[in-house]
Design a protein around this nucleic acid. Structure first.
Lengths: 193, 193
DNA sequence: AAAAAGCATTGAACTATGTCAACAAATTGA
DNA sequence: TCAATTTGTTGACATAGTTCAATGCTTTTT
């Protein structure tokens, strides 16, 4: 097995116990892809047919507002997933875009292969369920932050929580993720204290 | 079987096929509770040991911000679930409150019983996974709305989407859900066009 | 190495929304 | 049925955050 898959093996066995055969079956379905930086993986209107586990690099998913501005939904770096859940699972045209920022290495699972895996390894359903629960808790907290905390507070929490992302993506994308303008983030940072 | 459980039977068989025996097993684990209005079901610091399906009535889950103000996370009326996912599944002290607004009728499932059900009816894992996926899509859209749309736009989308909730809960709670003040919501409503 | 493109910063003016305080209306409860 | 509480409205003022435009700094492309 490719050494670069180790991070995936660690991820998936972290809180689950799959046999060696099961793991191999899972990996056999995941397509290893290398994607240059600044590449579109999904555009609005397309149907998303991948759930991509990030082995290396960093990417974003985002909406485009009517006025043309981007709203970053998520950053995905090593050990995160990159997909449009809605489009992937309902087979509907995507409302968001996905693209790479750095060059990325991904393990991609198609909808059909995912269903097959879920058939052969029922335990996988549980893994996904638990993963989605954590996902929801994150969204709840982010929503709370956006409603109840100031831009400055959200920024400070962000650099605490994702110091690496801060280093790896342009500031204006972080501003968008935080729900403020690039200019305002710049002012927050210029602020002493 | 109690007639009032029909709404649950409909809900759960809507996009799944459980046998009659499976359904009975599920229902046997769910405790039917009647709760008066303005009753606390969960307070901050408590461990949430229920996932409650709403047969009747309406309730809320909310955070309390440092400054004392409530932030409504969700309204739950008929056919919705009411729980603190994080506390329920991690057995950690809750960071939110849950309370009834109207008198409610609930079907409550404890963590232990849920695990037992998942053991005996593996198909349930799948149902939960799909449910959580939809849940996430909702949070994504709500987050997007909070970042990219004005208070007025969010309010208009809300009454479109949840006209019944609008009738049944005090306005200031809706303002909080939308991430604006009660006063500002009042002004939005007073606005012609 | 120069040109082009993308990114970050800053100032000045502006606006959506918040705050506080008073009051009116509706609901609840004894 | 009246008092108490909760809910909704309105005004005056305050502010966090936006917008736009100019400028310089990096990074990428040629």
């Amino acid at each position: 097995m490719d050494k670069s898959f180790l991070i995936f093996r660690e991820y998936i066995t972290h809180s689950n116990d799959f046999s060696s055969e099961e793991l191999d079956l899972i990996l056999s379905k995941m397509e290893h892809k290398r994607v240059p930086k600044k590449t579109h993986l999904l555009s609005i209107g397309e149907i998303c047919d991948f759930e991509a586990f990030v082995l290396k690099g960093i990417g974003i998913s985002y909406f485009i507002h009517e006025n043309g501005s981007k709203v970053i939904l998520s950053f995905a770096s090593e050990s995160w997933w990159l997909s449009d859940i809605e489009s992937f699972h309902r087979h509907t045209p995507s409302k968001m875009c996905i693209e790479t920022i750095e060059e990325m290495e991904l393990l991609c699972l198609s909808h059909k292969d995912k269903e097959e895996l879920l058939q052969s390894i029922p335990k996988l359903e549980r893994m996904y369920r638990l993963m989605l629960q954590n996902h929801i808790v994150n969204y709840q907290q982010r929503l709370l932050a956006n409603i109840a905390y100031s831009g400055k507070e959200r920024y400070q929490a962000f650099i605490e929580k994702y110091p690496d992302v801060m280093q790896r993506v342009p500031q204006h994308l972080i501003a968008s993720y935080l729900g403020i303008t690039a200019e305002f983030l710049s002012r927050i940072r210029a602020d002493k204290n």
